[in-house]
Design a protein around this nucleic acid. Structure first.
Lengths: 189, 189
DNA sequence: GTCTATAGTAGGATAGAC
DNA sequence: GTCTATCCTACTATAGAC
């Protein structure tokens, strides 16, 4: 049995370094130094640098996929669904801001099946988001602006939360959610 | 005299590759192949890989700094200043979307003085932006939401335009500006 | 579980011919 | 202005001792 907690420590340390310099610029020596061991020792816990990246990204992508599926299958109004999406992003960001840097900036360094799997999850997520906005517009819950611009501007803000949130001191999650909902939705309702 | 146009071709080709894989993951051999020559030949036109990156990023950062200074020194209302900032981002994005990927994602790979210079420009830009929003709030031109959230959500959308715009077909610059102004400002006015 | 040593590969950059 | 050849360094990963 591999020691799961040591592996997790490595993955967490890697996520911080990947956030600072990107996957390609972080060496196994950098990561080992951050852990206080030698590079070779890392391989007792992980199989490859690539495995670290795919664990970080795929786990997060599956969290978003799971959360979105619950929202899509709910009976809420379009606006309430958008509010739940904002809430989902805030929750994931608070739990793993470092990993989100890799998901946003280093997904293209995934290999083979993981790249395909990730791209499908991201595509489905955007499609679900777009469908919710479309439904809201046809409902007249949402103003009839260009749908692509609403989807893009909202998603780009939510995707960049990981960069901004850690710089704010002592913002409560619920206050953050309320304010994000105000700023992102007041304009389109 | 160095042939300035060949150098520009190299920089443009590099910007595309940097956008796709990031600065660190692009090799001089990749870049040479994209140009149809050998890696060694690149060095007849440029001094180093680093010089390519700093040219891409610093030129763009100076464009933003120049544009922002003009807006700050103008006599417009706060809302009109924000509209002009949106317009500035749309113009720069249409002119050099590829380079903006490097500015957003690879600035940390700048070295020495260029890194310091860039960070100062980015900091000043954000400060100017923040001051315009603050002035607008105290004027009662802008709603009294959390200022940091307004600055963050607006800037994150403008900074991510480079990812989204090339996927849209045949959007006219003026229509794009008008729609961005609607979606970004209607919520906060 | 960590170490030293090292294999094997690939990176940025230079020298000098054409 | 581009080429071939090559230097030197640094990378991921493995082998085997402790």
């Amino acid at each position: 049995m591999k020691p799961e907690s040591r592996k997790q420590e490595i993955i967490s340390a890697a996520a911080i370094l990947f956030k600072e310099k990107g996957y390609s610029a972080v060496t196994m020596r950098d990561l080992a130094k951050a852990m206080g061991i030698k590079a070779a020792s890392l391989y007792n816990h992980i199989q490859s640098k690539q495995e670290i990246l795919s664990t970080i990204i795929i786990d997060l992508a599956e969290e978003f996929t799971f959360g979105m599926n619950q929202i899509v299958n709910s009976e809420y109004s379009s606006i309430q669904k958008l509010e739940n999406i904002i809430s989902l992003h805030v929750d994931v960001t608070l739990r793993n801001a470092d990993g989100l840097a890799s998901l946003n900036n280093d997904w293209m360094h995934l290999e083979e099946d993981n790249l395909i799997y990730f791209e499908k999850m991201r595509h489905d997520y955007e499609e679900n988001f777009r469908d919710i906005v479309k439904k809201g517009v046809s409902n007249q819950e949402i103003k009839a602006y260009n749908i692509e611009i609403i989807v893009f501007s909202t998603l780009s803000t939510l995707r960049t939360l990981y960069l901004w949130y850690p710089k704010q001191k002592n913002i409560d999650a619920n206050i953050l959610k309320r304010d994000m909902i105000s700023v992102l939705l007041q304009g389109v309702i």
